[in-house]
Write a protein that binds this DNA or RNA. Structure first.
Lengths: 190, 190
DNA sequence: ACTCGAATCTAGCACCGCTAGACATCCGAG
DNA sequence: CTCGGATGTCTAGCGGTGCTAGATTCGAGT
């Protein structure tokens, strides 16, 4: 009898996703400090131990949210097309920064909290690879003779710095556009 | 009688600094998650409530550590002088990134954790002003016709992005120098 | 219908930031 | 020299956290 086993597995997968979505919603609504295992359990209408039958711990839940967030960022950047007279680089930068500004909790889980998503030689989640790939594609046209991957890392660093310092109110809120233009024209090269 | 009052105030100020130093040492040795009020109280050999007679809460202690960290960063950057054939911009960038790499916990308190140090119109701590001033001074020679303060914010953002992404193992550890050179030559302008 | 295993929950551990109220200690007036 | 009072410090505890052992409930197969 496979059907019963199948139904169980399907229900389990649905609940798995339910937990991830609940954590994400809670974080986006009230910040990560409001995401406790008790509140999360209440939100999904199960008791706390159920969370631990799906994830090794709270960190694993945050990590799952972060990885799905990477997928969304990749999707948003792929969809972003330059408007009239706009470089692809600028369109990508704007999409990235808009994502960081509109989903600060999600962005935090992805790149600020050190959730130890495998980044190095290990198996990197596909969602992350996709997001970085979009950045590479945007940088490509302006790389010239410069090393593409290295230049993309610089571009990403600049975006990440602007995103996090802006979120921490460390930069003048007006001047946002001027900063972006200055950064882009610098990277555009000679 | 002022002498007794004076002695008390002096002892109090010493203990104030003792707490800050202990918090900083604990954070640098084991990370901020290891800095609990209990461990901190044990380290300074007082009970927990004593901490609360000096600081409003744990956040205030972290904030104090962060502000002193800003002073140290400013001092390090002021001391950094370009070597033979090196631009002042590069010397400043290297000093900044070396600080971030060698004192990751301190850097975290200063710029990553949102400790709500007044940044905007409020009274900004002098240490912070000094640190930003050093960045401005380093950017000055290469600004050209570009707005100095805005360009400095871009420079800072790039440095901050590189520092945090490197610390989170998001960038290839080798290639560090190549990234820095690429970033600097981009900012150097045409 | 009953048994037995899997799924789920209750209750609790050790820790967290923080604080009220008991206690000690020391200063200055009588 | 004593003693009242202020000042400083500590003990003990509150409500919260992440996490888990053991009890309990539930449902599928014989």
């Amino acid at each position: 009898m496979v059907t019963i086993q199948n139904r169980r597995e399907r229900e389990r997968a649905e609940r798995h996703q339910l937990i991830i979505d609940a954590a994400r919603e809670l974080a986006e609504a009230e910040g990560w400090e409001a995401v406790t295992t008790r509140r999360l359990a209440e939100k999904v209408e199960y008791s706390q131990p159920v969370l631990y039958s799906h994830f090794k711990g709270k960190d694993a839940i945050v990590r799952a949210v972060a990885i799905q967030g990477c997928g969304e960022l990749a999707r948003l950047m792929r969809k972003a097309r330059p408007e009239q007279g706009e470089s692809r680089l600028k369109a990508a930068a704007e999409a990235y920064l808009e994502f960081a500004a509109k989903r600060p909790a999600l962005y935090d889980a992805m790149f600020v909290q050190q959730v130890d998503i495998p980044f190095g030689t290990d198996e990197v989640p596909q969602e992350l690879r996709d997001a970085f790939g979009e950045l590479v594609a945007a940088v490509g046209p302006v790389a010239g003779e410069r090393d593409l991957e290295t230049l993309t890392e610089v571009f990403w660093s600049s975006l990440h710095g602007i995103a996090t310092l802006t979120h921490g109110h460390r930069l003048r809120p007006d001047h946002h556009e001027a900063r972006l233009d200055l950064m882009l024209s610098a990277l555009q090269g000679p």
